[in-house]
Simulated scan of single mutants.
Amino acid sequence: MTTTRGGEAAVSTQGLPQWLQPVARAAGDVLPEQLSRFLPPESGRGRQSAVLILFGEGEHGRDLLLMERATSLRSHAGQPSFPGGALDPEDGDPEGDGPLRAALREAEEETGLDPSGVQIFGVLPRLYIPVSEFVVTPVLGWWRTPSPVGAVDQAETARVFRVPVADLADPANRATMTHPSGFRGPAFLVEGAVVWGFTAGLIDKILHFAGWEQPWDRGRTVPLS
């Protein structure tokens, strides 16, 4: 199912490629605490937001769309991430299809993709990013009809790139990120970037629950410079 600005958004697995079926099944079964130890505050505090986890089939096979945030941004500057951002009033009900529309709207604004070519096939439980106080709904998409993408606004997005799923699962590209704060988490060294933090954590869990994970050296560390 697709969406346009102001239109309805819905989840559908109809016609989904066989290779994405494990991800769709996992989305229906996984619990929030299986994805992250950072869950939305019971107080309701936090800004509602959404990210688009977009799977496609590019020139190098099955892949995932990522972007690198501009170094001038106040929040998560220079960090590779999924397209996404905070819900706007026009996105609609945060408890309904608002996060779906927000994920597609933000992806269009940041990468230039045509949302009509995206099929939303699942939604993961809401998670929390303490440093920015975002309550994030991860939206799963199948890039049924790919469109050209690139950095729309260099003040917000440094670059947009597609990473083969095989490269993400390759043990040679995996490591544990160590942060001066003491934070440790999964990292991926792909496409000239170090993917870490919230984005890497979700990719790590998707690989695991989809059955795509390969044994990797968790003792290999990469310090955050």
Rank of each mutant, 00 (worst) to 15 (best):
D204V: 00
H179P: 05
V123D: 05
V222N: 06
V139N: 10
H76N: 10
F134P: 02
S181K: 03
K205C: 06
N173S: 08
G112Q: 12
V222C: 12
V51I: 15
V136R: 08
A77N: 09
A172R: 12
A210S: 14
L202V: 05
L16C: 03
G61R: 07
G6Y: 10
P138W: 11
P223Y: 06
R25M: 12
A102R: 12
S147L: 09
S225C: 04
G85A: 09
L39D: 10
A86Y: 10
W19L: 06
Q154S: 14
Q18V: 11
T71W: 01
I53S: 10
G6H: 08
L73A: 05
P164R: 05
P22T: 07
V51F: 14
V30K: 15
D204T: 00
A172Q: 14
L100E: 11
A166N: 13
E33C: 07
L104H: 09
S225D: 08
V131W: 13
W216A: 02
R220Y: 09
T178D: 11
T13F: 05
D63F: 10
T71H: 04
W212P: 00
R218W: 09
T221A: 04
G182V: 05
V165A: 01
V194N: 10
G141N: 15
S12F: 07
A24N: 02
F183W: 15
A24K: 03
V131N: 13
F121N: 01
T13V: 04
T178I: 13
V23G: 10
P171A: 01
P130A: 03
F134Q: 12
V194G: 08
M177W: 14
D88T: 02
D91K: 00
A9E: 09
P32Q: 07
T111H: 15
V165W: 07
Q18T: 13
V123C: 05
L65C: 02
V30M: 15
V222T: 08
S116K: 03
D114Q: 02
P99M: 10
T199F: 08
S72W: 09
Q21R: 14
G92A: 04
A103H: 12
W216N: 02
S75R: 05
A158D: 13
A210D: 15
P148I: 00
L127T: 15
P138C: 10
E8M: 14
R62W: 10
S36V: 08
P94A: 00
L31M: 11
G197V: 06
P32R: 03
L202H: 08
Q18N: 08
V139T: 12
G197C: 10
A103T: 12
E33G: 01
G141A: 09
H179F: 14
R74D: 15
